[in-house]
């Protein structure tokens, strides 16, 4: 297949497009206003930031619409398809590295910083003089008991349920993929719908867990290093699930409109890859944040 298309197919170079530039403007608008908001100007900045976010989403939507239309117009060949595959793969790799930073922070503080604060190893005097009698064990909010006492989320309640939900959703999305390859619209659409639903339920429980943590467990973003790593890791994961669910939903709509065929459906696969990535990150979270 590769040889037959690359022989005569001219790689598609799109026309000049204003959308990337407008997307940049929107991002700039959103982050600039966000910065002022963070700096404490709450009169207009929050609304401007929200507007920026809305503009960003609109620009992304328009840009992707162009891509979808080009694809439906049949301008993409095998080589373009490969481009999108490679690009998505590398994008997911960059996402992995982003989570890597936070997992790294978790491992470092648990394995290195906390023992040091306990006076282990070469940091004996740290404990003796600065944090006398501190004997932190994970989960810890540090010798300052920052944020006050807290309890951790029980891994075997909501998180376990969420693990099951996400793992199931990975199965359903694969099932939908089989349906797509078999040209079974019914299988595809139910599988996808189930996945979207599972994603949404996951998010609901995640939200519930946060409410629980804040209201009953005393576990907040400010609960020292445990709270920091817990909320940033699960929070960024949650944001990715939100994005993934949104993308799956759009893919579902596209499926309903009949955009994909059994041999040309990278849009679907890209989102499925992303979903699997989100799933794998969750497994890491479940093990290293909740269980251990």
């Amino acid at each position: 297949m590769a040889t037959e298309t690359s022989e005569h197919h001219k790689y598609y170079v799109p026309e000049p497009s204003p959308w990337p530039f407008m997307l940049t403007v929107s991002l700039f608008f959103m982050l600039g206003s966000g910065a002022f908001w963070l700096n404490g100007s709450t009169t207009v900045a929050p609304y401007l930031a929200a507007l920026g976010l809305a503009m960003t989403l609109v620009m992304v939507f328009i840009w992707f619409r162009d891509v979808v239309n080009e694809n439906l117009g049949g301008v993409y060949g095998h080589q373009e398809d490969m481009t999108y595959r490679w690009a998505m793969g590398w994008f997911i790799f960059s996402e992995v590295m982003f989570f890597g930073a936070f997992f790294g922070a978790l491992f470092y503080t648990r394995m290195i910083a906390l023992p040091w604060l306990n006076g282990e190893g070469e940091k004996f005097f740290t404990n003796l003089y600065l944090w006398p009698e501190f004997e932190g064990a994970w989960p810890s909010n540090g010798p300052g008991n920052v944020g006050g006492d807290f309890e951790t989320v029980n891994a075997w309640h909501l998180p376990l349920l969420n693990t099951v939900l996400l793992l199931t959703s990975s199965v359903t999305v694969t099932w939908a993929h089989w349906g797509l390859k078999e040209d079974s619209r019914w299988k595809l659409c139910t599988g996808l719908a189930a996945t979207v639903l599972l994603g949404a339920v996951f998010l609901y429980y995640q939200g519930l867990e946060y409410v629980e943590a804040y209201q009953h467990l005393g576990l907040t973003l400010g609960s020292g290093i445990y709270g920091s790593t817990f909320f940033l890791l699960t929070g960024f994961h949650g944001m990715h699930v939100t994005l993934g669910t949104l993308m799956l939903f759009i893919i579902l709509l596209r499926c309903l409109k009949g955009h994909f065929s059994s041999h040309d459906h990278f849009g679907f696969e890209a989102v499925a890859w992303y979903w699997h990535f989100v799933d794998v990150v969750w497994l890491g979270l479940f093990i290293f944040v909740y269980i251990l």
Binding site: L38, T109, W116, G142, S228, L232
Partner: peptide
């Protein structure tokens, strides 16, 4: 987040470094 949202990644008192 350390600056605006009270996390303590880089603050020893909260167990960070």
């Amino acid at each position: 987040t350390d600056h605006f949202f009270g996390t303590t990644f880089f603050d020893a008192a909260g167990g960070g470094d």
